[in-house]
Design a protein around this nucleic acid. Structure first.
Lengths: 338, 338
DNA sequence: CTGTTAGCGCCTTCAT
DNA sequence: ATGAAGGCGCTAACAG
């Protein structure tokens, strides 16, 4: 059997209370005593039972982290950053991957994090009022990456402004017939970004009085295949768009393929800009709006740890995005158009 | 405060032992009694404290899952599958993302899963003898995805055979000067695949007595950039390769870009085949050897759950791979070569 | 079929 | 600065 706190106490010749205090670095322990205890613990290869500690203290030193799909780039990237910060702070990470809307419902009705975490981090879900309420009922610090909700901490970007950055770029290149390939704003998994990026797109057009054409707004469902299908439809329009803004790089990849398969050249015949600066965007020579992904996760995690320590109010942080121009929105376009 | 088992017992008019039995679905409880208890529990919105249960029972209903980098496609994909199976079985998942070799060392020396999990799943690390020993010292079922070690359960593919599938395909198209872009077999994170895929590559050449040329074996470090750099070097050789086998699709993407940037055509001037059937391989029109990724994770998790239930011997399962031919290894190559 | 009673291993007052 | 002792909330014999 593994050593228990009593074994350590016996070997060090002190009480278990002193062992507990020494090992946790609490004050009011004589240095000599602490050293004796540390030596004994090391000799016995002692590790405290987290369950006993948690039961006795009421603290779990664990975060619950909820993601819609671990295997998608954005969520995996955020998760990695969150994990790193938690590990550094001595916290465990309990992963909850929703997977689909059924998994989502189960999570919010069962709330499997109950009685087992000190805080919860939710990544990029547009929570319903009921869901926010469910999370609030936990009476724990709750943080969100990628969206803001009353009463919850958050770190995010300004999706509306970022979408405008993208569309403004296309406008500045002279494009006026600009299509949108977006996410479903009625998606059962309800991400916030589609909604805001659509608004940004329309605002940008509106700002210089380019009338917006519903026929140019298509759904790409945040997948490569979806982006490709949407682009195919756009290419069949009587009056084809000269540029496309895709709400994610992955959809943009699909759009680029559709363009190439139609015998047209990306950037020359049709400009394409994406969103994210996904790890392959550079490879694909895709212009995009970069959002700091890992940073959002790390920053929120730090904020949550601070909240746990100081019992402070929820915070909301908005991080900047950055236009990244690559070959898919080349300037020489006019050369080929004329 | 949240309700405890005593509150439920009081409301149902039974002892806490009966509540425990009823809620866990143990036998020897009268149906009427069980119903009373369930009703009381529901009314109080009762959830058992996992820490108390774990302390008392000695079981944690938790798996530790170790991945080198969550944010990389393969690991994220496996993780998602593992999570799904565990969730379905009522298990929690404690995530450990190593990140770098420092994180790796820390994990294996500290073993932060001690006293908190029932089993450990390690994804695709070539463990050293010391590391296997450290895991074994936990005296828990340990499983590995993507490699095999004595005493540990595993689900994996045959990397040697899969690499041969890829190279045989190139050989069958008439290629004889075939380069390799591989992972570092001395990588501090020590994945097994590079080693085996290199062997498969050499075996395939050997089988038809094509002499293997060390100048054609380059390191791509499993990144797009690494693959591109490796390909650039290969293109500068006096006697250029006519085909390339990359040990991962991501490296193949980089190689394809290098080929295009050199003004050559992928598939026509130089054939490229990757490995994995990464989610973008279809998009890139890249031929590859598909390995079942999520399946490996799910299968191993089921095996581990079974091992926990039956206390059976470690198992080893090898899943098949499949050649997927796309445009990057087109047959019409000869048309252009002649 | 149900209740009683020890623990599980640690944290945390409260004394000293 | 240290020790004694009572929980934390549940499980698991053991009785009955």
């Amino acid at each position: 059997m593994a050593a228990s706190i009593e074994d350590v106490a016996r070997l060090a010749g002190v009480s278990i209370a002193t062992v507990s205090r020494s090992l946790r670095g609490l004050p009011d322990v004589a240095t000599a005593t602490r050293d004796k205890v540390l030596a004994a613990a090391q000799q016995l290869d002692y590790v405290a039972s987290p369950f006993a500690a948690r039961l006795a203290s009421g603290r779990s030193s664990t975060f619950g982290v909820v993601v819609p799909f671990v295997h998608r780039w954005f969520f995996a990237e955020v998760l990695g950053a969150v994990e790193g910060v938690l590990r550094g702070a001595g916290y465990d990470l309990l992963l909850h991957n929703l997977g689909d809307s059924e998994g989502r419902e189960r999570f919010f009705s069962v709330l499997p994090v109950r009685k087992r975490v000190d805080a919860v981090i939710v990544v990029s879900l547009a929570l319903t009022a009921d869901e926010v309420e469910a999370l609030t009922s936990l009476e724990l610090p709750v943080g969100v990456v990628g969206a803001r909700f009353p009463g919850l901490s958050s770190v995010r970007i300004d999706d509306v402004a970022a979408a405008r950055q993208a569309v403004d770029h296309l406008l500045s290149l002279g494009h006026r017939r600009i299509a949108l390939i977006g996410g479903d704003t009625d998606d059962p998994m309800r991400f916030t970004p589609p909604h805001h990026r659509l608004i940004g797109y329309r605002e940008a057009l509106n700002a210089i009085e380019v009338p917006y054409d519903p026929a140019l707004e298509r759904l790409g469902y945040f997948t490569v295949g979806g982006g490709e299908a949407a682009m195919r439809e756009l290419l069949e329009l009587a009056e084809r768009p000269t540029a496309v803004f895709a709400e994610s790089d992955e959809m943009a990849y699909g759009a680029m393929r559709a363009i190439r398969r139609a015998g047209l050249r990306v950037g020359h015949d049709i400009a394409v800009i994406g969103f994210d600066d996904h790890s392959n965007a550079d490879l694909m020579d895709l212009s995009t709006v970069r959002q700091p992904v890992a940073e959002q996760g790390a920053l929120l995690t730090h904020a949550m740890l601070a909240a746990l320590a100081d019992d402070t109010e929820p915070t909301d942080t908005v991080l900047p995005t950055e236009l990244v121009v690559r070959g898919s929105t080349v300037l020489e376009r006019s050369v080929y158009k004329n």
